[in-house]
Simulated assay, not measured.
Amino acid sequence: MHPWTGLHALALTAGLLGCSALAHGEAGAAQLRGAVLCLDATSVQLRFEGLSAAQQRPLSSLKDTLNRALLGVFRTAHVRHETRASCQTSQAFTRVLVEVRYLNPKTYVGFGDPAYAYTLRMAVGPAEARAGTSASKRPAIQFASAWSDIHSEGNTKKPLSGVLTALGQEQARDLARAWQHDNP
């Protein structure tokens, strides 16, 4: 199973449950007791749809920026975490997926140009579900949160990269608060 399959299910669920201009929130109760959050080179992933090379360029540093934001928030909040070469075997694999789609003004009238639909998802849990695990065992480590909205650089005069960085930091703080709640 691909590590992002659970996030795609989360996105579909979030999309079906709420269709507001800005959707944000945690999906279900977090379970982070005893978790040592794990980050690796694949923890932050970017996916672009319909963006030209020139539109992608300002977003190219977003992966490193969000990774630094996670580490900074974890250190400041004293969240137990580690950076590994691979978190594929970790029960607390921490992942961020940023998806950005360009809204062509010929199709998406009234949003300004350039405008983008984006989703920023954060999840903590095993890289893939383990077959044969018993529900009577200690609950699996889990956390999921998502932001989804439309941003018009044309109308706001604010770059999308700054908006996504700020939202990524906010999600990292949400995760830190959930971790602190479960690990007093």
Score class of each variant (00 low, 15 high):
S20L: 09
I150S: 03
A41Y: 04
I141T: 15
S60T: 09
G34T: 13
L164G: 11
P184S: 12
V109D: 04
L120C: 11
Q88A: 13
H151Q: 05
A23E: 13
L175W: 01
R95A: 11
H2D: 15
S86D: 15
A127C: 06
A14E: 05
H78R: 15
L175E: 05
E153Q: 14
S86N: 10
A69W: 00
A85I: 11
S134Y: 02
S61W: 00
T42G: 11
A176W: 03
T107I: 12
S145Y: 10
H181E: 11
A9H: 07
G110A: 04
L97I: 03
Q91W: 01
A123S: 15
G168Q: 08
R130A: 14
S152M: 08
G162N: 13
G154Y: 08
L22P: 00
M122F: 11
T156I: 01
T13Q: 12
N183P: 04
G15L: 04
P58K: 05
V163T: 14
T65C: 01
F48M: 03
A129G: 12
N67Y: 14
C19K: 11
H151G: 02
L16F: 11
H78S: 15
H2W: 07
T165L: 11
R121D: 02
N155E: 12
H151K: 02
A144M: 07
T65L: 07
P159K: 09
E49H: 12
D149W: 02
L51V: 03
R80A: 15
R47S: 06
V100D: 08
L46S: 10
T42M: 06
A11I: 03
I141D: 04
D182H: 13
R95E: 11
D64H: 07
L16Y: 03
W4T: 12
A140F: 00
P3D: 12
W179D: 06
V163C: 10
A21Y: 05
S90I: 08
G15V: 02
L167Y: 12
A9E: 12
G154D: 06
A21K: 07
H181W: 02
S52A: 12
A146S: 12
R84L: 15
P126T: 08
L46R: 08
V73H: 05
T83P: 00
V98I: 09
Q180I: 07
A166S: 14
T65E: 14
L167H: 11
S52D: 04
A127S: 15
L167R: 13
R173E: 15
S52F: 07
N183S: 09
E170P: 00
G125F: 01
G110D: 03
L46V: 10
E128R: 14
G168H: 10
A9C: 03
T165W: 08
Q88F: 10
A144P: 01
L17E: 14
C19L: 10
K63W: 04
R57N: 08
E170I: 02
D182T: 06
A77G: 03
D182N: 13
A11G: 15
E49C: 07
Q169W: 10
